[in-house]
Amino acid sequence: MTPNDSPYKSKGGFARVFNATRYSAQGLAAAFKHEAAFRQELLLVALLLPVAVWISRSIGELLLLIGALLLILVIELLNSALEALADTITVEHHPMIGRAKDLGSAAVMLSILFCGLVWLCVIASHIWQMKL
């Protein structure tokens, strides 16, 4: 074993896929249990998924709307992971940890703005088509 090898890294095969799936499910469960923002964004996704199916005119448009929603959840999961790691290091005020948390929050905000823009463009294109 070289100094860079982690004893926690699996070697591959079906067991790796099984374990990765299990760890992912644990991560989603932890986010749902401990992260209010994730629960709120998940509720938004649950409410807007049927709307996306209803307003989409093509599979591409549907994937765009759903993808924009899922992007928010992905960025929120990464932000929550960063915050959990930072809080494990210290809960004392530290300017670099504060900056890291602010950057994660900014990433979530940008994903929400992007999602809103995608949805507005799709809805606007529908309205534009109706007027023609």
Rank of each mutant, 00 (worst) to 15 (best):
L78Q: 12
F32A: 01
I66N: 03
S24N: 14
M109E: 02
G12I: 04
V53Q: 03
A31E: 09
S125L: 08
G60T: 06
N4K: 10
C121Q: 09
L77E: 10
F114G: 05
H93K: 00
S6P: 07
S56L: 09
F114W: 05
G12K: 12
L82E: 03
Q129Y: 09
K101N: 13
D102V: 00
L73Y: 07
H126Q: 12
P95F: 11
E61R: 02
D5I: 09
P50H: 00
L120D: 02
S24E: 13
E41K: 13
T88M: 01
A37M: 13
L28F: 13
V108D: 11
I127K: 06
A15S: 14
R99K: 15
T21D: 04
Y23M: 09
A81S: 06
L73P: 12
A46N: 08
P7Q: 03
I66L: 04
I127M: 03
L64T: 15
L113W: 00
G98P: 03
K9Q: 09
G13I: 04
I89N: 06
G13E: 12
L43Y: 15
S56P: 02
S105C: 01
G27P: 05
L71A: 14
L71P: 03
P3H: 03
A106L: 15
A106T: 15
G60I: 11
G116N: 04
M109I: 01
